[in-house]
Write a protein that binds this DNA or RNA. Structure first.
Length: 425
RNA sequence: GGAGAAGUGGCAGAGCGGUCGAAUGCGGCGGUCUUGAAAACCGUUGAAGGGCAACCUUCCGGGGGUUCGAAUCCCUCCUUCUCCGCCA
């Protein structure tokens, strides 16, 4: 959510910056509502002041044992006018709030202008894609060949876009999550957290999923709860409504969780394999920081995610999302894309974003600033990494001619020393 | 699931129809004292919004109601605690 003061003071400027991310702000409507709000608010407050004043006089009169009937008559006809004014004010403020909740974040100055994914700016490439001397398979052929990855059974027990893993491959999936958590907690200073996978609407609103992306979420009918699309939601919302001590910052949390996404509107995309699933695991890093620090922290956070890929020796590149491709709540986002031999392309495996005060304002997450006044914190998060996609990357990059998969050295301790995942039967 | 108790400012904790945005303590900030610090003492200290200066409005778990007037009364929901039941 943007600061309404900013909209009041520089509406045109905000509209211009939002246009860069392909959002059209209805300037005229906002202006009209603000005008209306001002009038109704002034009138309402005048009526309230009159009521308060007269009521106080009634109290004083009664305390002295005087007759207050005249005063009471004076104020009794205020009631209806006041009620109408208050209701009107509430209505306008709700409309303004709705508009505000639907406005995306302003892109940071360092974000390149662009209209689509094609305009994202490559920052660096790390590692060289391996040269294969045999025809490469994608993870689906590899997994099914090993009889350890099964989409048919998954769709029987649930529906499309789910998967079943078995044996060493399931363990490799678990090993990846463990490895990531261990690196982030022991080397990058994050506190491991375990959080609810079902959250309420306030939390969804806090991080920006609601109201705009309600259709993308799985809802538990009747309970007012929603399956989390990322651990970002429960973890970031831990500080919702809090006023933190300045010395508590930065807060660094890491959580491993399943993520649930309806993938509405991506019906034709990535239908094969486990690239795009309704359920996937992710290790998520979240930082709650002082506003002055957030852009330095974004670089650090990105480095923490990259460290995982480096330790697994997977080739990747980093891109800065352009203004047209950046997410709703983010001011700046780096994507990390891992090389997938099966697709001969780089695919997103992590997204690291600075939300500045956008989420903090929705959540009212603050800290006591230098002058003793509460100030909004900045929030950031990054995948570190998407576990399912990392598994895909490991399978495809570490495949052998016989269809087996070499276990990356960094993971062998988590696999009981196993060096190769091969078909057993 | 059943019975009871409670939810007040950063924290603890009074208030239970009128002058209460709210006593008191702790914490925070400023000052006196001190070479410095601690202690002691004095002062100050909630948030949001409107004019943006005086001032005004709103907020005592959320929502609704009664009243000229509600932190205080009523309804409802949520949360926490205690006891019983059930369960991994």
């Amino acid at each position: 959510m943007l600061d309404i003061q900013l909209l009041r003071s520089d509406l045109e400027g905000v509209a211009k910056r939002l246009a860069a991310r392909r959002f059209e702000l209805d300037v005229a409507r906002f202006r009209a509502l603000e005008q209306e709000r001002k009038e109704i608010q002034t009138r309402t407050q005048e009526l309230q002041a009159r009521r308060n004043h007269t009521s106080k006089l009634i109290g004083q009169a009664k305390a002295k044992g005087e007759d207050a009937a005249a005063l009471m008559a004076q104020v009794s006809d205020l009631g209806d006018d006041l009620k109408r004014a208050e209701a009107g004010l509430e209505q306008v403020q709700e409309k303004l709030q709705d508009i505000l909740l639907g406005i995306p974040n302003l892109p940071h100055d360092s974000v390149p202008f662009g209209t689509s994914e094609a305009d994202n700016a490559e920052v660096r490439r790390v590692g060289t894609p391996r040269a294969f001397d045999f025809p490469v398979k994608d993870h689906v052929d590899l997994g099914e060949g090993l009889q350890m990855l099964d989409f048919t059974t998954a769709s029987k027990i649930s529906q499309a876009r789910f998967s079943v893993m078995r044996g060493p491959l399931a363990r490799l999936h678990r090993a990846l999550a463990q490895f990531m958590l261990d690196v982030h907690t022991s080397e990058h200073g994050y506190t491991e957290t375990y959080v609810p996978y079902l959250v309420n609407a306030d939390s969804m609103r806090g991080t920006g999923q609601f109201p705009k992306f309600q259709d993308d979420q799985f809802a538990i009918e009747g309970d007012g709860l929603y399956l989390i699309p990322t651990a970002e939601v429960p973890v970031t919302n831990m500080v919702r409504g809090e006023i933190l001590a300045p010395e508590a910052l930065p807060l660094k949390f890491v959580a491993h969780s399943p993520c649930f996404r309806r993938e509405a509107g991506s019906y034709g995309k990535d239908t094969r394999g486990m690239i795009r699933q309704h359920q996937f695991d992710k290790v998520e890093m979240v930082q709650i920081v002082h506003p002055d620090q957030s852009y330095q922290v974004l670089e650090l956070l990105l480095g923490h995610a990259e460290a995982i890929l480096q330790r697994l020796d997977l080739p990747y590149r980093v891109v800065t999302l352009c203004s047209g491709d950046i997410g709703f709540s983010a001011a700046k986002t780096y994507d990390i894309e891992v090389w997938l031999p099966g697709q001969e392309t780089y695919r997103e495996i992590s997204s690291c974003s600075n939300f500045e005060a956008f989420q903090a304002r929705r959540m009212q997450a603050r800290f006591r600033g230098e002058k003793g006044k509460p100030e909004l914190v900045h929030t950031l998060n990054g995948s570190g990494l998407a576990v399912g996609r990392t598994l895909v990357a490991v399978m495809e990059n570490y495949q052998n001619a016989d269809g087996s998969i070499t276990v990356p050295p960094a993971l062998r301790g988590y696999m009981g020393g196993l060096e190769r995942v091969a078909r057993t039967a």
